[in-house]
């Protein structure tokens, strides 16, 4: 895997992976991750290290195991080979507790209103009926642009609105590591831009580590510090593209265009 080797050269944190000191571990460390479903190999020897506070996008064709990678990191897949750790703690030993996930589908509770759905994401030690928690949820409703819909049920929302509820639920969790699985795919262009900038704001304010899976090369380049390109079936790391543009970024930045070209080339399009 020459490409990942290249990434580790650039990334001093990964060099400390083998060290005994857990504090030196990257926020998110994946080494030699292989995941099989029966005879199908979904991920093959994937290496990935994400530093604390870093924003990484993962792109790749359908069926390359992007979603599987996120499922492993959230602790939803118990059985895999290799290592997956959050802050040095294996995801199977509670490391996944620090991970929040926004699923590809909204996955909302049909009987609960928007406020209650977002409150599901509140950390376990927060009482959802507490006024401060309520304010926090209302703030998130505003952040994702759903003012006035706090009392609506998912059945009354459009697909894009439901996706934003799901996004707000992920933000309510205030995780150290936030994973997002194509969270903007159902949004119209304008709302998508808005929500991308919201996500960047939240990322900057909270200093969270973010890994975002997307199909959208433009989105990946605009948002991420680094873009991991997965390829093929089974999924392997094809290459890692550094996005060298300064923040805050302009969508038309030359450096973004260069990064997009590089990603597109790596995807073999």
């Amino acid at each position: 895997m020459p490409s990942t080797g290249e990434a580790s050269k650039r990334d001093p944190a990964e060099a400390t992976l083998g060290s005994e000191d857990p504090a030196a571990d990257p926020a998110l460390a994946v080494r030699g991750l292989t995941k099989r479903y029966g005879d199908t190999v979904a991920l093959d020897e994937v290496d990935l290290a994400i530093d604390g506070g870093e924003f990484v996008a993962v792109v790749g064709p359908s069926g390359c195991g992007k979603s599987t990678l996120l499922r492993v990191l959230t602790g939803l897949e118990e059985r895999f080979e290799g290592r997956a750790a959050v802050d040095g703690v294996d995801v199977r030993d509670g490391g996944s507790d620090a991970v929040g996930m926004v699923f590809q589908e909204p996955r909302l509770l049909a009987w609960a209103d928007v406020r209650e759905n977002i409150a599901v994401g509140l950390p376990a030690d927060v009482d959802p009926d507490d006024p401060a928690a309520r304010d926090r949820v209302d703030g998130l409703i505003e952040t994702v642009g759903l003012d006035g819909f706090a009392e609506s049920r998912p059945g009354e929302l459009s697909g894009g609105m439901a996706q934003r509820v799901s996004l707000a639920r992920g933000l309510a969790y205030e995780p150290e590591v936030l994973l997002l699985d194509e969270p903007f795919s159902a949004l119209d262009q304008l709302t998508k831009y808005e929500q991308q900038d919201n996500l960047l704001d939240v990322w900057r304010e909270r200093g969270a580590t973010v890994a975002l899976v997307t199909h959208d090369v433009e989105e990946a380049a605009y948002l991420a510090d680094r873009v991991v390109v997965l390829g093929g079936q089974p999924g392997t790391v094809e290459t890692v593209v550094d996005v060298e543009a300064d923040r805050p970024r302009e969508r038309t930045d030359e450096a973004l265009l260069a990064a997009r070209r590089e990603i597109t080339d790596a995807l073999g399009v």
Binding site: L76, S96, G100, V120, A124, R169, Y173
Partner: peptide, 9 residues
């Protein structure tokens, strides 16, 4: 899975 990811217990 949602309940699991958000550690509802």
């Amino acid at each position: 899975e949602v309940a699991e990811v958000y550690d509802l217990g």
